[in-house]
Amino acid sequence: MITFQILLFAGDREKMKSHSVEIAVSETATIGNLAEKLNQEYPSIFPRPEGLVFAVNRDYATFDQPISETDEIAIIPPVSGGYL
């Protein structure tokens, strides 16, 4: 397992009362796996994992993108209201 410190902003940061959240996933995990894990561990804060938008190393990422230990991962809340 690898533990990722996922950066949080705006409403997500306020709801989690933290600038980041730790999520552990397998070595072969993708962004989609991270989204599912976030939903399992914090269902009230991330009720729709399929609507989450992530950035990996400061670039928008797709759900099938693999992630590795040194990646900087962030959840990008909607900038125009409502999850995508």
């Binding site: 902003f9 705006a10 962030a74 900038v79 125009s80 209201g81």
Partner: peptide
């Protein structure tokens, strides 16, 4: 800029607050 740049705006009202389009 509104679509792709990660900057967020919160409006604070007398009776609450909301994160909106930046």
């Amino acid at each position: 800029l509104k679509e792709t740049v990660p900057i967020w705006k919160k409006e604070v009202f007398e009776d609450g607050e909301i994160w909106v389009d930046a």
